[in-house]
Design a protein around this nucleic acid. Sequence first.
DNA 1: AGGATGATATCC
DNA 2: GATATCATCCTC
Length: 183
Amino acid sequence: MQALPRSFYNRDTTIVARELLGKHLVRVTPEGRRVGRIVEVEAYLGPHDLAAHSSKGLTERTRIMFGPAGYAYVYLIYGVHHCLNVVTEPAGRGAAVLLRALEPVEGLTDRTNGPGLLSRAMGIDRNSNGHDLLSADLFIAEAGAREQIKIVARPRIGVEYARHWARRKLRFYERGNPFVSRT
DNA sequence: AGGATGATATCC
DNA sequence: GATATCATCCTC
């Protein structure tokens, strides 16, 4: 099981988001290995995207998001849940893809159909912020061949404050997959 | 429909 | 230093 190369992430964010569907997110801890198939994501395009954290500019919080591709950007939301993103595009762009839901593949017992649930089930919190996704304990890998994924594009969740950007169809999920978060 | 719960940005 | 807000989830 091989981590995707940095070049995979260092591309247009919308393309990366769509291609992440069907890939395997892998977490290795002393307790064992956990693997989930990515079935739902959202693209955050950069400072011009009013829904993206990077629209606030380069701050301590967004430092990782403005860094090079292939790193984990993890933050605490509503004081309760952690959200896992993968940084995309060259350093300075402030773009990332939020992982929103997984289909359990191995070692997963808790629910994974939502960004907070996904992070909790995979044992991911702020300690993983800035973690290189080309590492042995947290990475994304190609999955075994399946039938062609049918991708649905919809507006992103929870970004109504972002004016016209709230309507952009930057949420992508696999059509008919029961592990997609509810809406 | 509303509460949890804490980091962060943005004011004073 | 205070406060409003938040890329969610659960219970009522």
